[in-house]
Amino acid sequence: MSKEEKKVNRRDFLFTASYAIGAVGVGAVIWPMIDQMNPDKAQQALATTEVDISSIEPGKSITVLWRGKPIFIKKRTSEEIAEARAVKLDDLPDPQKDEDRVKAGKDEWLVMLGVCTHLGCVPLKDKGDFNGWFCPCHGSHYDVSGRIRKGPAPTNMEIPKFEFVDSNTIKIG
């Protein structure tokens, strides 16, 4: 009896092969059921937005919708840029230079995903302890460069992919 148990016979092979084929089959059926929940083609098609920025005054900002999320476009004054660049990187929870958050030569334009990196609320402008944005949901403070300074948010507000089509138009996405 015990001798026979140890022997791998054709039946064991058939069992293992059947389980393996079965597992592949189940996986092949489950994947479409899972992937159907990812963004569909209609959602993906909304991936770029062009914005006219000619009417924004220095120190002011506008909010536009991109992929269902707000984008803050702020034309910063030279004082604001200087303030953002005077901050020591050691003081930042998520160290990043202001220069790395804007396009070179277009330093006045801060284009940023207006979504708190904590739990996704929209921060309020010109509020908080750092002259930038303040999220009312759980109290995250961002500076004039949109970098996290205080509160539960782990990272700076995200910079989306964007480019200047001409001096008055930017394309987001």
């Binding site: 899972i34 963004p39 269902g68 739990l119 996704g120």
Partner: peptide, 24 residues
């Protein structure tokens, strides 16, 4: 967005839950 706290795959999971790039 609570699920976006999960390291590495958090953002993909959140997008998957939404079926979009935000709640929509």
């Amino acid at each position: 967005n609570l699920f976006s706290a999960i390291p590495l795959v958090g953002d993909s999971i959140t997008t998957w839950l939404w079926g979009a790039y935000s709640v929509d």
